[in-house]
Structure formats: C-alpha cells, structure tokens
Computed example of a mutant assay.
Amino acid sequence: MFPIVTAMGSLPVESYEDAKALVASGCPQAPHCPQLPRIFREDLLLEQGIAPWERAGLIQRRPDGRPIVDRSASGFAEALARFSRICGVGECGVDEPIEWYSNDESLFADQSPTYLRFRQELLERAWPGKPNWVKAQLAGPLTIARYVTDERGAALLDDPELRELVVASAALQAAWLASDLRRLPWPVMIFIDEPGLTGMGGIKEAGNTGAEEDLSTAPDDDFISRAVGAMAQAIGQTGALAGLHCCGEADWSPILGSGVHIASFDACRHFEGMLRQAEAVERFLSRGGLLAWGIVPTEPEALAAATAEGILGQLGEQMAALASRGVSGEALRRQMIVTPACGYGLRTVAEAEKAYNLLGQLAAWAGKTGGRGIRL
C-alpha cells in the first residue's frame, strides 16, 4: 500500500483537461483535486477558506478584490450572530450545521469548478487509470486567521471570537469535503494547507494564498494544537485521513501531537526542522501517523537539476538521519507518502510538467518496490 505518491493541488495550466493529464500521469494511484488559480479566483487558497464567510455576509471586498471582515458594515452583528449559531459556536441555530455546508453553492461546486469535475469523473469511473487513494486539500484555519484581516488591517487571529469562529467554520468545511469524497470507493486523504504556520515573525506570501500580508502575529502552541486537532477530528469522523501541509519552516511539535494523521513537510528545504523533532516523529509514527515527504523540488533551480535517482538518494539520506536519532526505520519506510515540496501554481507550465514527470517515475518505483529500495 505504501509509499503513496501524490501532490499538493495548485497547477499553472489554464484548462482542466491539461491539469487532469498532469495529475493522472504523475499521481496515477493517488490523484489529487487540481486547483487552477490562474483562471479561477475561487481556486486561490484564501478564497476557498472564506467561501462560507462570504455566503454568510461577513466578507467585504476592497477595490482590489481583497477580502476583509468589516465590523462596521451594515448588518454585520446580526450576520455574525447567525453564522456563529450555524457553526455551533454558542447555541446552534439549525438541526445539523453540516447541512448548511452541504449546499453546493456555498462551497466547492460554484466556488471551484475544478472540484466539481474531479469529483464527478471519479464518481462515474471516468478518471484515467485505477486509483487506490483520492486526495483533496483546503485552507486551514491558522492561515485564514493570519491572512484575512478586519477593516483596520488586524489579523482575525488577534480577535478571540473571530479566530474561534474561523476554526469552527473550517472544521465544518473539512467535514463536508471529506464526507463528499467518502462516497467514492477509495480511501480519502484531506490535507489542511497551512502556509500560515511558516515562521513566527513577519513574513511575506507563502504558498498560493493570493495575499501578501505581514504575518507578525504568532499563534501559540495551544491554539495551533486545538485548531489542527479540531480539523483532524472533523475529517477523521468521516473515515478520511487528515493531513497537515506546511511548505515552510515550522515547529512541528504541536502538530505531531495534535491528532492529525499525516504530517506533510518540505523535505527539500526544511528537513532540519523535522529532524529536530525526532522524538516527536517517533511517537507520531508509533501511533500510526504518516510522513508526507515533500521531496520533489518546487524551487526552479533545484527542480531543473532534479532526477528521480537523486530524489530517492536524498530521501534515503534523510530517513537514515531520522533513524540515527531513534526513529524506527521500518516505520519510516512503511508509513511514507512522497509529494512535491509545495504546489506549482506559481511556477511555469514546463516546471510543473517536469515535476509531474518525476512524480510519475517515483510512482512507478513505489509500485515495483513498495519502498524497500531505500536502505537505512
């Protein structure tokens, strides 16, 4: 069953058919839902995350299209109270909050045409090849709370009421997505995309958020664990696996102990951060967690020089380094997913094509060896 080879989501192509061809060739056993941010604003990471907020009337748009939560807007207090009830923060105002999210118009159907087609082709067995897994991804609450601001420019993370509502809404959104894909005959992975975990000081755009805000507010470990744990629980209750993806430097200790099933990290540039958490990695693997190694580069220079053989060599060296610090080598081999370091939405089509060609070679290797070719 392992290793699984899949990818993140965003692609630079400008048609669903081109995206489908890339995913089918690079991730034949574990296709992921493609996202096309160059042609669909709705496929930008933040736009997915705020879709329920916008439906609830809590989002205003700046002239440049940037979304904000404007407390001074007419009817804001009433809309906030209603949305809080829907999300179960306080007294629940509907029988089942998930029903509000199950309306296709509120989420991924009108909001993401690529998701509609991906889901339908899988349901109709029209997707190429023979999948063993299906993966989708959505914005995590930490990233939404750090990148989306109020009318004064303050991150939602700074407001205790709003940040709790972000977590509750994101968890319901994840539960809807996981439940929707669980209609398929294959096991499902839902990755929570959290570029907002990158760094703890002021950084600029990380990943495909569509924002360039200064992330000077750092969430503490307790909030990180609670937020990720809420997402993992919501996804896990559907029978799907919950993954957390961060493509930057992050403290993985609160993540590995949060209850998430998959830890997806940039092994090309930030392996040292995971190595520093070797004891936490061992505990994570011992309870059945999976490591998703972002070992296919997204940086242009590294990608241009990359080969499948070189990637496998680097992967073996990193696994050996973890094993030397007490992490079970057998568990590392058995509980492994191979991915790119991040998405390719900000890269060229040629770079994406090369990356997915490498993924296809790695998928063929995984199918033949089951990961046994890596020596520790």
Results as ranks from 00 to 15, higher is better:
Ser25Glu: 13
Ile203His: 11
Gly273Thr: 08
Ala145Ser: 15
Ser258Thr: 03
Gln361Trp: 06
Trp127Cys: 04
Arg146Ile: 14
Gly210Tyr: 07
Pro195His: 02
Leu275Lys: 09
Arg82Asp: 15
Ala250Arg: 03
Gly371Pro: 08
Arg41Ala: 12
Glu249Tyr: 07
Pro12His: 01
Ala292Tyr: 04
Arg333Gly: 03
Pro52Lys: 04
Val327Cys: 06
Pro340Ile: 01
Leu358Ala: 01
Glu99Thr: 08
Thr149Met: 13
Pro12Gly: 01
Cys87Ser: 05
Asn132Leu: 15
Gln314Met: 09
Ser72Val: 11
Ala250Glu: 10
Ser169Leu: 01
Leu241Tyr: 10
Ala263Glu: 07
Lys20Trp: 09
Thr298Glu: 02
Pro297Gly: 00
Ala19Asn: 02
Val89Pro: 03
Arg333Pro: 00
Ala155Lys: 10
Ala174Ser: 03
Gly326His: 00
Ala51Arg: 10
Gly153Lys: 08
Asp221Gly: 12
Ala227Tyr: 06
His261Asp: 15
Asn357Ile: 01
Phe118Met: 11
Pro34Arg: 01
Gly88Asp: 02
Val188Lys: 02
Ala321Lys: 08
Pro28Ala: 02
Tyr356Pro: 00
Phe191Thr: 13
Ala363Met: 02
Glu121Phe: 12
Ser225Arg: 11
Lys130Cys: 12
Phe40Gln: 07
Ile295Ala: 04
Thr6Pro: 03
Arg269Glu: 15
Glu317Trp: 04
Gly294Thr: 01
Gln361Thr: 06
Thr348Ala: 02
Thr307Phe: 05
Gly26Thr: 00
Asp159Trp: 05
Ala81Met: 14
Leu359Met: 05
Leu162Phe: 06
Thr339Gln: 04
Ser225Tyr: 01
Glu47Asp: 14
Trp133His: 07
Gly93Ala: 05
Ser84Thr: 06
Arg66His: 14
Glu54His: 08
Gly310Val: 06
Leu162Ile: 01
Arg347Thr: 02
Gly259Phe: 05
Leu315Ile: 02
Ile4Ser: 00
Asp251Ser: 10
Arg347Asn: 08
Ala355Cys: 05
Val89Phe: 07
Ser324Tyr: 03
Tyr356Ser: 00
Val13Cys: 11
Asp180Pro: 00
His32Tyr: 15
Phe265Asp: 00
Ile4Met: 05
Cys87Asp: 06
